[in-house]
Nucleic acid binder design. Structure first.
Length: 174
DNA sequence: TCCGTATTGAACT
DNA sequence: AGTTCAATACGGA
């Protein structure tokens, strides 16, 4: 079996996210492609296309519902329960890093250094950054709550605008 | 094996 | 106070 992922859209006020599910859980989540963090102003282009519900296992539909709820909550700075995540094929190091990030509650931040300490490898700060960059499930795994040591904005896969917006919504100052 | 990385902290203008 | 630089762990080619 290969990338037998089920692809489902999630419409939010920030645009349409794309969620992909494997047989084990949520495997990937993508930012809206044509939607910058430039304040959509409610003019979100909502594409309504025929949904092929056929062939989608009910468990995936269930996960998708959880994902949709979680995503929308987090987008307004609230904590939420997450669907099962499928990190198959990823390294133990990455999984450790992401698990630490899941422990960051809404409205709080951690530095890359703190993450590295938390996983027992204080010197692996840059590797932590690398793991963040390959995080397949942004937002839900709150990589945006990870800042540099002096509380500065690091980088972000989906664009720094996103990171800034998300942090702002959670009332984080930097 | 070599290179890049979403870092860091210390040294140096 | 701003900038440069080496160190360091890990993943991908």
């Amino acid at each position: 079996m290969k990338n037998n992922l089920v692809e489902l859209p999630i419409s939010t006020r920030d645009g349409q996210f794309i969620a992909r599910y494997s047989e084990k859980g949520l495997a990937e989540l993508d930012f809206p492609k044509n939607g910058r963090a430039e304040l959509p102003l409610g003019q979100a282009a909502q594409q309504r296309r025929p949904t092929r519900s056929n062939g989608i296992p009910s468990k995936i539909k269930n996960w998708h519902r959880a994902t949709e709820t979680a995503l929308k909550k987090i987008l307004v700075g609230k904590k939420s329960k997450l669907p099962p995540l499928d990190w198959t094929g990823k390294t133990d190091f990455q999984k450790s890093v992401w698990r630490q990030m899941l422990k960051i509650s809404a409205g709080k931040t951690k530095s890359y250094g703190e993450i590295s300490i938390a996983i027992g490898k204080p010197k692996a700060v840059r590797a932590v950054g690398g793991a963040c960059g390959t995080n397949p499930v942004p937002v839900l795994v709150p990589c945006h709550r990870v800042l540099a040591a002096n509380k500065k904005l690091g980088g972000f896969s989906g664009g720094l605008d996103w990171k800034r917006s998300l942090l702002k919504r959670e009332g984080i100052k930097f």
